[in-house]
Design a protein around this nucleic acid. Structure first.
Lengths: 362, 362
DNA sequence: GCCCACGTTGTGACCGCTCACAATCCTCGC
DNA sequence: GCGAGGATTGTGAGCGGTCACAACGTGGGC
């Protein structure tokens, strides 16, 4: 059996019979012998309250266990300190880590955090409206097509920040946004492989967040740029998905091609699948093929061979995005905007110099 | 550069100059030539409204883009349809997957979902109070000590459901809760290893959620029971942490002991670390040592050797927990409580029969 | 000794919506 | 053709806070 029923919520033989309803400022006021407005002043730290009165009210607050009703506060003041995250996923490393950073930052600032997953089937406008009228602001994770589309449809009057892929050089998003320069990181990782003596680098792509451009996102672009800069014609990217299975499928094909000696993957899950496919094909890593991943997921350092990858500061991105939103919500509170760490290539076992020996038999 | 500034929020040369403030039922009422109460009836689907009036109001609602103010509704009605999840972690597989299930279920039911991470440093009562006066109900993930402690401190009058480790046999939690029978699963996994010919099974434990008992949680108990049932004296469990590094540390010690031929791990991350440590020590898996993990994290099927593990339906647990909470929130709405899948042992490459050959040289 | 400013406190109205009830309209049966 | 009763609509109050302002004291400066 997996599920217990509820405890019947207390017989009415409670020690304190009248504990039912939460105390309001009116209750406190009566207990302290003042007006409700004075109580309001005390809980808001208003200066002009006599010290003795303040103490009396404080005492009443303690006694009655008063907590200011957040709903009423929001309605009366018009201020809603809360954040809702719109995302398409909560478990993939990049998303989960971003969410983690967002949660940390919002918690530190005392903002409740809401999470709403958006699916391709959702009516975007309806979803956004629902998230928006929770009050507060929105943070959109736009790593993929659906997320990016959601961001586009957020009405102008809704406070909103986004974390996105690196936009094309020179162009800045029309919405407040944060990103890491994964284009440059992909370029560096590819250049690293070329420098190791590999003739070319194959790319297993993550799904693109924008569909119109010829490229498949900044990571693909960086990879392409590095190859072109070296005078190499980029081979066709493969990959159709985010997870290890997609990596495995792509890797199976690449493994058959003995000319493939270096593979860059759009994320570590894909890389894991590629590794597995290479293993099944009898191709050794890094002796026969070098593999580099992206994101530095927690397990990537512990698999065998450990994975060379690009570390991404998703948590930092999340924190930064929250900071960006907060400046819109709290007009005065100018928090020092935290800056995420630059992407960094982490060299591990899965990459190495091209072996001079020719292709070996399968 | 990582961060864009805000777009200056629209010059006042807007096409519709008066778009500033959201329409209220009073605005709608005026536009439709009825009283605000009639509007209220329409938006709440009250039966006694003349069809023509209803249409007129609907039209006004469309025109003005009216959406009922959630805050005011909550204040006036006293109903807060929302859920806050209290957890110590959002990224570890078990937690993240549970959260995912929770999100799915709450989204399907139209409840906004809040997430609040609890740290050991937090003042539990304060944290709970803060989460509770967001309105709505609480779901506590009590997989670890801090989470379990938080659950204990939730005031009786706060609607609350929990997902927890399997409680001791015969005892049911005093709070509505869901769990999977990981005790039995651990027993089965251990028995499986014994049946493969291993003399004993070592256990690398996850941190316990309860500190008082002699055991280190249901998984440890199941493991111990299986050994005792086979007349084997359980060796001391190791492990101090949740992640691969902790597994690596524990695995390093176990790898030195040539008598160790089978290891059960409290989760897949630990198993990953153990695998890595065994690899470094030159002990082959599964030929020299069998390793079984717990949880079936997404990458476990793709590492090499692929990991034999116990699949846990965390998503299902999350969904069930939400269902449990919902029955407390919606008195009438009796949703069919979804039942999570039973834990299942997934056999893969990392476990196998004990090799009859004696310990080999390092 | 009086006036005015200021520190302190209380009152009224309102945020946007829901309740409870009263007031109106219509329709039917006799 | 008239009254009863249900359908439809409108009014008042209040949820628990906030704002604006008015009404008290008190003290210092002349």
């Amino acid at each position: 059996m997996h599920v217990t029923g509820h405890t019947t919520s207390g017989s009415d033989a409670d020690p304190h019979p009248g504990q039912q309803k939460a105390a309001s400022i009116r209750d406190v006021a009566q207990a302290a012998g003042v007006s409700y407005q004075t109580v309001s002043r005390v809980i808001n730290g208003h200066p002009n309250v006599r010290e003795e009165t303040r103490r009396r009210v404080q005492a009443a607050i303690e006694t009655l266990g008063f907590r200011r009703n957040a709903t009423a506060f929001a309605l009366a003041s018009g201020v809603t300190r809360s954040v809702t995250v719109l995302t398409t996923n909560t478990v993939l490393h990049g998303y989960a880590a971003t969410l983690q950073g967002l949660e940390e930052a919002s918690r530190a600032a005392g903002y409740p955090l809401g999470v709403r997953v958006v699916t391709p089937e959702d009516d975007l406008d309806r979803t956004i409206a629902a998230a928006a009228d929770t009050g507060g602001g929105l943070v959109v994770i736009g790593f993929d097509r659906v997320g990016a589309a959601a961001l586009d449809r957020v009405p102008a009057h809704v406070p909103c920040a986004a974390v996105v892929e690196a936009p094309p050089p020179g162009r800045t998003p029309d919405r407040p946004a944060v990103w890491a320069d994964d284009r440059e990181a992909a370029r560096a990782a590819t250049a690293h492989l070329l420098a190791l003596g590999h003739d070319t680098v194959h790319y297993v792509a993550i799904p693109a967040s924008t569909g119109t451009r010829r490229s498949a996102g900044p990571r693909a672009e960086g990879w392409r740029q590095a190859l072109e800069a070296a005078g190499v014609v980029p081979p066709a990217p493969s990959g159709k998905g985010w997870d290890a299975q997609a990596g495995y499928d792509a890797g199976k094909k690449l493994a058959r091609n003995q000319d493939v000696t270096a593979i860059l993957c759009g994320n570590d899950d894909l890389a894991l699948g590629v590794l597995r496919a290479l293993h099944h094909a009898g191709r050794r890593v890094p002796e026969d093929v070098s593999v580099i991943g992206f994101d530095d997921a927690p397990h990537s350092a512990f698999i065998t061979p450990s994975l060379t990858t690009v570390r991404m500061d998703f948590q930092g991105l999340g924190r930064a995005a929250f900071g960006l939103l907060r400046t819109q919500l709290d007009t005065d509170q100018q928090a020092p905007a935290p800056v995420p760490a630059e992407p960094a290539l982490i060299l591990r076992e899965s990459s190495g110099p091209r072996q001079s020996s020719g292709p070996r038999d399968t």
